[in-house]
């Protein structure tokens, strides 16, 4: 039935697809923001709660350092550097497509149907689903911690290191986005894989806030080669901080983030399309 391999792409993969997706995403986001604003008090409270919760998160690390000098050989500013980069990248991805885990619900109750009837890419609509501006709290908090870390940390600011920092943040966000999309695609088959997805996204973001040295080597291998979260901040951060990498990978790997992120996005995109194709909807 699906004889021509690129036949299905004709509709969705026209040159303007990315622009069309962004446009649709913005349209849907705007609707959600207006919906949220119809419950203004609730919005203010959850936004404040969110910010407070993430702020407390870093406080636990600060408290830890009141008892120890170093964590996995890292000083507080260095851990703050890891925390800031991981939190900012993850916060960006969470802000952009944090509602992907709601897809399972839509698949189970069949409300995905209504999204599939619109003349815009489904992925853009699902990513924008339940868009919540309050998630900006994590990005702000990540940037604040990163700012403090940059002020206190001892980095030799070569041109390369200066350029690597913003690239790292963007690459990290892209990798987390890919994880969100892959997790979303998986829910077409699994029905509800939200918790598996959360363990990789939220769990991964927490993992990356600590130096790789404090974790078992196999775990570090896993997040380097299986789900390449190490490229979010560990590898480039270790270079910037002048630390050896516990896996002893060659130096060029520290710069492989962008291509790795591209591959992740491409793979998750393919997975997504396969997922949409296998969508079964519900009874009526």
């Amino acid at each position: 039935m699906e004889a021509e391999p690129r036949g299905g792409a004709a509709g969705e993969r026209t040159p303007g697809t990315v622009a069309e997706s962004v446009r649709a995403y913005r349209l849907v986001v705007r609707m959600w923001m207006r919906s949220t604003m119809s419950y203004r008090a609730s919005f203010v409270m959850t936004a404040f709660g969110n910010f407070a919760a993430t702020a407390l998160d870093f406080l636990t690390i600060v408290l830890m350092f009141s008892h120890v000098e170093a964590l996995g050989g890292f000083s507080l500013p260095e851990v703050a550097f890891l925390y800031g980069t991981a939190s900012t990248s993850f916060g960006l991805a969470d802000l952009l497509m944090g509602s992907m885990d709601r897809l399972g619900e839509r698949v189970r109750d069949g409300t995905l149907d209504t999204l599939m009837l619109r003349p815009v890419p489904v992925l853009a609509q699902v990513a924008a689903d339940r868009f919540a501006l309050r998630r900006l709290g994590r990005v702000v908090q990540g940037l604040l911690v990163l700012g403090w870390a940059l002020w206190r940390v001892d980095v030799h600011w070569t041109v390369l290191n200066v350029a690597l920092l913003p690239v790292t943040l963007v690459v990290g966000a892209a990798i987390f986005c890919a994880v969100y999309v892959a997790g979303g695609a998986f829910q077409f088959w699994a029905g509800d894989a939200a918790q598996v997805q959360n363990s990789v996204t939220y769990g991964g973001a927490t993992l990356l806030q600590y130096p790789p040295g404090v974790f078992a080597r196999d775990l570090v291998r896993g997040v380097t080669f299986v789900v390449p979260l190490a490229f979010v901040n560990w590898l480039p951060a270790l270079r910037m901080l002048g630390r050896p990498d516990p896996l002893g990978l060659p130096g060029w790997v520290d710069f492989a983030g962008a291509p790795v992120a591209l591959v992740c996005c491409a793979l998750s995109g393919l997975l997504w399309r396969a997922g949409v194709r296998s969508y079964r909807s519900t009874g009526s």
Binding site: E2, A10, G11, S35, T114, L117, P119, P121
Partner: peptide, 22 residues
Amino acid sequence: RDRTRLARRIGVVFGQRTTLWW
């Protein structure tokens, strides 16, 4: 195969499901 393109030319109403913003 061309769902998105077809979407412009059809209208669909599911009686048990709304497309309106609550």
